[in-house]
């Protein structure tokens, strides 16, 4: 009904504009009335920005986080417990590369962190959507000294967030289920292997569904083949996230 009403109002105002133009042209002249086409150009609406400052603290001891992937969207979830990870999520969780994740078709606006987010470090990423108020927020980042662990939250409802209001969250860690948690040197891309281990590999040799992460075992806790040490262990939560709407 609302759009129909708007349509009627628009036609009415266009009709008024045309008749005024006709009167103007015919004023006291013998010239034939020239019907000019009048184009009514509405004033361009000022773009409305929905802008969010996302402050993230890495709560782990020795798990740098890959560049943060921050997405505003209105539908869907970027992962779900018990369902297979998308290839974009698999890539993020195995290698830390967030390009495909940020370019997902569900994303209305997205932003990346600048670099690795080191343990104890805080980074603020700003993400802005023009003219549409986003309802959902997703953030993902890889714990880089793991096979395929990632941290964050997906489809957090931010539709009630007013300007200057914020939401603070403590979030846990997930396992993308796409790579076995062998903890072998050849399979971990982070500084624990000097960055020498493999990142993304399209083969899925694990359970192939997303779950919460069980944590790393490490060589110090009985996994003799592990390249990881006790300091690479983590518990939940792994990230502290504060989302503040600034515009």
């Amino acid at each position: 009904m609302t759009s129909l009403n708007n349509l009627r109002k628009t036609s009415l105002s266009a009709a008024i504009a045309v008749s005024i133009a006709l009167v103007g042209c015919g004023g006291g002249s013998d010239d034939p009335v020239v019907e000019e086409e009048v184009v009514v150009v509405p004033p361009a609406p000022t773009p409305v920005n929905y802008s969010y400052e996302v402050k993230v603290l890495n709560l782990t001891v020795a798990q740098p986080m890959s560049p943060l992937a921050v997405v505003l969207h209105n539908e869907g979830e970027f992962w779900k417990i018990g369902e297979a990870a998308s290839v974009a999520l698999e890539n993020l969780a195995e290698s830390g590369a967030n390009t495909d994740f940020l370019a997902d078709s569900m994303a209305l606006a997205s932003a990346s962190g600048a670099d690795l987010l080191m343990p104890g470090a805080t980074e603020t990423v700003t993400v802005t959507l023009v003219d549409t108020m986003p309802t959902s927020f997703t953030l993902a980042t890889m714990l880089v000294n793991t096979n395929d662990a990632f941290a964050g939250i997906t489809a957090k409802d931010i539709s009630n967030l007013a300007v200057d209001e914020s939401i603070s969250l403590l979030t846990g860690s997930y396992d993308s289920g796409t790579e076995k948690n062998s903890e072998l040197s050849a399979t971990i891309p982070g500084p624990a292997t000097g960055g020498m281990g493999e990142g993304f590999n399209e083969e899925r040799d694990d359970v192939d569904v997303v779950s919460m992460h069980a944590g790393v075992v490490t060589i110090d806790d009985g996994l003799s083949q592990s390249v990881l040490t006790e300091e690479h262990r983590f518990d939940n939560p792994t990230l502290s996230i504060t989302i503040t709407r600034v515009e």
């Binding site: 903890e183 919460m212 075992v217 806790d221």
Partner: peptide, 13 residues
């Protein structure tokens, strides 16, 4: 098995 049967909280939602 230490690579299969471990967990971190939370364990259920």
């Amino acid at each position: 098995d230490n690579t299969v049967h471990r967990w971190l909280n939370p364990v259920a939602s």
